[in-house]
């Protein structure tokens, strides 16, 4: 059946409204986008690392989760879900559970790239039949916008502030999607909210229904941390994709595939410009930093093209 956004949106939400996430936050959009791919009759257990999503959707005595949900700590969503999945296997074997369950863990980039990396790596390597979804908003937003290893280069965060002696975060982003792809698990994909959400939906469906461990890295903008107008979230995601800051690709059974090649690759400045966290780059003194940035983006894009068996298409201006 062909993908139809309208039809998908008519499905009952697995995450109820009324949660306390900020207006325009990318995380609940990611959650709904991913969980829409779970078949209506299938049961789900959701796990969550400590972070905005957890504290805003499950504040005692209210829960926004219609399925079973577990939060353990910041750094252990991978291991916690390993335990839930192991319990399912054991109880199913003993005939104590009849229905089909799916297992999805959500973590922000803090809980995934950084403090939870070991736990995630372990869960993926062991091959638990689960999906780990990182909603990557590029900083520790819950504690007040501190840098993470997912924070883009030169971003102004509360622990990498720009100033007289600083141009924001000195380091580039860690490429977690490729790190997990190199665990050689059945399915890894990078996606975001793009056009009619087809990319996110199809990747979620594959991740959920492919047997074994799967990982989705979903760019989920944070208007507070990125400092852009709340209503522009779709535009921000489009710019991230069209500048090749956030390429859409997947690695299925070891086969790397680019899902989208922009007809016209936009300069990285187009993505940086609307965001307050990069404001300091747009002064005459700092023009070279944007050039440096472009180089890094181009290099990473080239590398990815090669991995995906595509021809080089970088036009250097």
């Amino acid at each position: 059946m062909a993908y139809n956004l309208k039809q998908e949106l008519s499905k009952p939400d697995r995450l109820a409204g009324g949660h306390r996430m900020c207006a325009g936050c990318g995380a609940p959009i990611a959650v709904r986008g991913v969980t829409r791919a779970v078949k209506e009759g299938d049961k789900l257990v959701v796990g969550c690392a400590t972070g905005c999503l957890e504290v805003s959707t499950f504040m005692y005595p209210y829960t926004s989760w219609k399925d079973s949900f577990i939060h353990n700590a910041f750094e252990n969503a991978g291991a916690t879900m390993s335990g839930v999945e192991a319990a399912y296997k054991a109880l199913k074997r003993k005939g104590k559970i009849k229905g089909e369950y799916k297992f999805i863990a959500f973590g922000g980039d803090g809980g995934t790239y950084d403090i939870g990396l070991q736990s995630l790596s372990g869960a993926m390597e062991r091959g638990h039949d689960m999906v780990y979804v990182c909603y990557d908003n590029g900083a520790y937003m819950n504690t007040g916008i501190q840098r993470s290893s997912a924070t883009p280069k030169f971003a102004d965060t509360t622990t990498t502030p720009s100033g007289k002696e600083s141009t924001g975060k000195p380091q580039g982003r860690k490429d977690l999607t490729q790190i997990i792809a190199n665990h050689h698990i059945p399915y890894v994909a990078q996606t975001t909210f793009f056009r009619n959400f087809k990319d996110l939906h199809e990747k979620s469906e594959k991740a959920i229904y492919k047997k074994g461990a799967a990982f989705l890295n979903v760019l989920a903008p944070c208007p507070r941390g990125w400092r852009y107008p709340t209503e522009d979230i779709m535009e921000m995601c489009k710019l991230a994709v069209d500048t090749c800051f956030w390429p859409l690709y997947e690695v299925e059974d070891g086969k790397w595939k680019l899902n989208y090649i922009p007809k016209k690759k936009l300069p990285i400045a187009d993505f940086l410009k609307p965001q307050g966290r990069f404001k300091h780059l747009f002064t005459p003194d700092n023009e070279h930093l944007i050039q440096e940035y472009q180089k890094e983006i181009d290099q990473r894009w080239e590398d990815l093209l090669a991995l995906c068996g595509e021809k080089s298409n970088v036009v250097t201006s």
């Binding site: 577990i70 700590a73 109880l91 736990s119 372990g122």
Partner: peptide, 16 residues
């Protein structure tokens, strides 16, 4: 892959 994950998995499993 660690004791931290051992007890974390135990929490998930027992809660399940």
């Amino acid at each position: 892959e660690s004791e931290h994950s051992a007890i974390s998995a135990c929490v998930g499993s027992q809660a399940a």
